[in-house]
Design a binder for these strands. Structure first.
Length: 833
RNA sequence: GCGAAAGUGGCGGAAUGGCAGACGCGCGAGACUUAGGAUCUCGUGGCUCCGGCCGUGGGGGUUCGAGUCCCCCCUUUCGCACCA
């Protein structure tokens, strides 16, 4: 009796065996030389995780598995796939957690990274552990600082005092993108407005390019839409409203005249066509000209309102969408279109951050202005007549639609769109207007008054001013500080470390101080993909040859929650480095796909709900292959899925059956596949090949299940030739199991190193007989079986012979026949009676 | 309010304008077993007078034929939100 070869499928044993073997063989590792000379390189990137103390969550694993399946697939199709992973370990989140635990982040983070590494290995990702990054490693953030210096030199970094979002709980500044509905995205504390000296990157200089390039990059539409909205381009005009001299009201209608100093209010509008209906002006309370326009008798009221606005936090101010408030300044300016003097108000519904911080109010055609005018009894003039309106039609609400201009002098009768241009052109002749584009995007504030980040590499000298740290002095190392707590005053923890911040000026050698703020974590991740191929090199941030070979990234997979932070800023940094000659491409990610979100039993997962999935437990019970396969089977990868605990049985049973089908290898039958099975095999190869390339994993897996069902139908025993390809097709999803079966089938040296993806043969997929649906008047009445390629006449003849069809044809005359070869016949007959 | 996506069995989800519900979960019946995830076979949208009829959020339309295309409406989710 031969040695027993049948053993039950034991995922844990199979998986640890292959993980060990991949490691020993360096299956997924690149040497520097191998990276320099790849055949058909494919850079398969996924968003690197933030190494929390809780370990990988199922969302991480979902994303990584989806990306890994893609990478393994392309590897089997012959590409050289570089699939790196790293750790985004700086930032407020880690720091807060360390504070909570009373552990120093320098102790905490390495522990978390070790745990993450263990978990990442366990799920069977094809990661190149020779090329990882850790953003907290001085060898990494040296180059983050280098990027700051490059942007500084390129004129893209500036220091300015600016209103910023201050989180009183995190005790730091937040980027606009980190403020959600007026609250801190991390701790949900109400954000305050503060005026602090900050470092900004001038991303607004790239607004148009960031927008334009969206046209040609292959990204998920949803992501592109988010970026488009965030950039927020508005086309309109800047209009000039000259300030009226005191007492100008008396001179109403006397034409446009500047005062002696030619003072004016500048407003941005997208509706210059409605300028004849501008009956008052509104300035943001913080507007610099408020003092200038306020008359003595209104001063106290104006001051009180400004103070109130200043003290109101952003949430209350922004959410006060019901009641409009504001006060009259006593000042007036001239509407350049009508020549009339109109009053100037201040109100907090006008924001200093957008446009010019001032508006012309057209209550007839703007909802907010209408509301305000109604509240304060200001005049409302109709200047656009919609369909069915006359010039004198009364308003129930602002009319914002299209129509013909009225009460607009020589522009009466013009439609809204042409009038926009005509009016701006007319005013431009008098230098009172210019066409203008505004963006909602603001410059990127990168300063953080915290400890756990790369120090911003700047030195302040009383004599020489602010200077970047010379590149040969990088990195500016983050010192080990026992007391790293943030402070309410906004003074950074590093400002308390005198021995660290005192330094000498690189210019004059005199006494100088270091910048004590650290940079935003998002800067770390704005270039990490450039670092991976060059991770082993310490003399440059990214090696020119390696970068040319591997970048831009071929495939990037990640979550849409990073659409406007990471993904937009990474594009900006890449463009900036490109323009400064450091890169020869301007877009970092040729293709980006956003994956969906995993929910559980129809509900969002959260710690507070107590319904999070613990990956380690699932993997221990079912194995990584089953977990991977189930996650990919849940639903369309780009839409996410609903994780139901019982559902894992399906993919688990499938892998067991696959094992049982192949496993007594010496009992597999030899010979060609049975014809029906071979046809199914080749249609399956075609479907899986197409769908895995397109991330349609759930249906690809369904096709594999269908095929195995057919192979095993009725307790049938498989032939070797029927299952070998199947093992390869499942390999991207269940790499360990596939390797094991492949080896047991007698192949040496490893599936991912030596095997290649099965080829689809259209001849073998072809069916001799086809089932043709037969309809009468569009309703299915029968199905007939005929040789493939049968003509319409033949099909009609067979159909007519069918009882179920004849019944319907007897009583009516055939009026028309629709024939779709090999698929369908529709006989249209006259309705009876 | 603006923008985007989506509404299909008990559930997750399939369907180049051409047989709606693939695949899986769950459930039902049976078989073989009975120590772990068992495995196998058959069935499983609703109604039915067993001829069929009705079914993809609702209402219209185009078409020989609509889950799919067009128009209107409803609901849900996700962004953005006094952005001038």
């Amino acid at each position: 009796m031969a040695e027993k070869t049948t053993t039950a499928y034991a995922p844990a044993a199979v998986e640890s065996k292959w993980q060990r073997r991949w490691e020993q063989r360096g299956t997924n590792l690149f040497t520097d030389q191998a990276l320099r000379d790849p055949r058909d390189p494919f850079y398969n990137l996924m968003m690197y995780p933030y190494p929390s103390a809780e370990g990988l969550h199922v969302g991480n694993i979902y994303a990584f598995t989806g990306a890994d399946v893609h990478g393994r697939y392309w590897r089997l199709r012959g590409k050289t796939v570089f699939e790196p992973i790293g750790f985004d370990a700086f930032g407020i989140h880690s720091e807060n957690y360390a504070l909570k635990l009373g552990v120093h982040p320098l102790d905490l983070i390495p522990r978390n990274i070790a745990n993450f590494t263990r978990q990442l290995r366990r799920i069977g990702g094809m990661f190149d552990w020779n090329h990882t990054v850790d953003t907290t490693d001085p060898l990494y953030y040296k180059w983050t600082q280098w990027i700051f210096v490059q942007l500084y030199k390129g004129g893209l970094a500036e220091r300015k005092k600016a209103p910023v979002n201050w989180c009183p709980s995190c005790k730091t500044v937040l980027a606009n993108e980190q403020v959600i509905a007026g609250r801190c995205e991390r701790c949900e504390t109400v954000v305050e407005l503060r005026y602090i000296e900050q470092w900004f990157f001038k991303i607004t200089q790239y607004a148009q390019q960031l927008l334009d390039n969206l046209q040609h990059i292959d990204w998920s539409e949803s992501t592109k839409r988010l970026q488009e909205n965030w950039i927020g381009r508005s086309e309109g005009a800047d209009l000039v409203f000259p300030l009226a001299d005191p007492g100008a009201r008396a001179a109403a209608g006397s034409g446009v005249r500047f005062n002696a100093d030619r003072e004016a209010l500048r407003v941005f509008t997208t509706r210059p066509d409605t300028i004849f209906g501008a009956t008052y002006m509104v300035l943001a309370p913080e507007h610099p000209l408020v003092d200038r326009v306020t008359s003595p008798e209104h001063r106290s009221e104006v001051e009180a309102y400004r103070l109130q606005a200043q003290q109101t936090d952003l949430v209350t101010r922004r959410k006060a969408e019901k009641q409009k408030t504001g006060v009259f300044t006593g000042g007036h300016c001239i509407n350049p279109a009508t020549g009339r003097a109109i009053p100037i108000w201040i109100a907090d519904y006008v924001l200093m951050e957008y446009g010019t911080g001032a508006i012309m109010a057209v209550p007839g055609h703007d909802e907010r202005d209408f509301e305000f005018a109604a509240e304060f009894g200001l005049p409302i003039v109709r200047v656009v007549a919609g369909p069915g309106d006359t010039a004198e039609s009364p308003f129930a609400a602002a009319y914002v639609g299209d129509g013909a201009l009225v009460h607009s002098g020589r522009f009466d009768g013009m439609a809204v769109e042409p009038a926009k241009r005509a009016i701006v052109d007319w005013l431009a002749e008098q230098e009172l207007a210019e066409h203008r584009v505004h963006y909602r995007l603001n410059d990127w504030c990168i300063s953080r008054q915290r400890y756990w980040g790369p120090p911003i590499p700047v030195i302040y000298c009383d004599a020489c001013g602010a200077l970047p740290v010379p590149e040969n002095q990088l990195p500016v190392e983050l010192p080990y500080v026992d007391d790293f707590r943030p402070h309410e005053s906004g003074v950074s923890p590093l400002a308390r470390v005198e021995g660290w911040y005192r330094t000498t000026c690189p210019e004059c050698g005199g006494e100088a101080r270091r910048e004590t703020d650290v940079s935003d974590t998002v800067l770390d991740s704005s270039w990490y993909f450039l670092r991976y191929p060059s991770a082993a090199k310490n003399d440059v941030p990214f090696d020119a040859d390696l970068t040319r070979t591997w970048l831009p990234v071929d495939s990037y997979i990640g979550g849409n929650e990073h659409a406007v932070l990471h993904l937009l800023y990474a594009r900006f940094i890449t463009m900036a480095l490109h323009d400064m000659g450091h890169l020869d491409f301007a877009e970092p990610f040729t293709k980006f796909r956003a994956h969906g979100l995993i929910i559980r039993e129809g509900a969002k997962m959260s710690k507070s709900r107590g319904n999070v999935i613990i990956p380690d437990e699932i993997i221990e019970r079912y194995g990584a292959d089953t977990f991977r396969l189930y996650l990919m089977f849940l639903g369309p990868f780009e839409q996410g899925g609903d994780y139901r605990d019982e559902g894992i049985q399906g993919p688990h049973g499938f892998l067991h059956r696959l094992w049982d089908t192949v496993m007594p290898v010496d009992q597999l039958e030899e010979g060609e596949p049975e014809p029906e099975i071979e046809r199914k095999l080749h249609t399956t190869i075609r479907q899986v090949t197409e769908q895995v390339a397109d991330l349609q994993y759930n249906t690809a897996i369904a096709a594999l299940m269908e095929y195995l069902n057919l192979v095993r139908a009725g307790g049938r025993r498989a032939r070797r030739s029927e299952v070998e390809s199947l093992v390869l097709l499942i390999a991207p999803f269940a790499p360990h199991l596939a390797e094991e079966l492949w080896e047991r089938l007698g192949h040496e040296g490893g599936l991912f190193e030596h095997a290649s993806w099965p080829a689809f043969d259209p001849d073998k997929a072809r069916h001799d007989t086809v089932e043709i649906a037969v309809q009468v008047n569009g309703k299915l009445r029968s199905v007939v079986s005929l040789p493939a390629g049968s003509s319409q006449d033949e099909v009609v003849r067979v159909a007519r012979a069918d009882d179920r069809i004849r019944r319907y044809l007897d009583e009516g005359s055939v009026r028309r026949i629709v024939f779709v070869p090999d698929r369908l016949l529709n006989v249209v007959v006259s309705e009876r009676g």
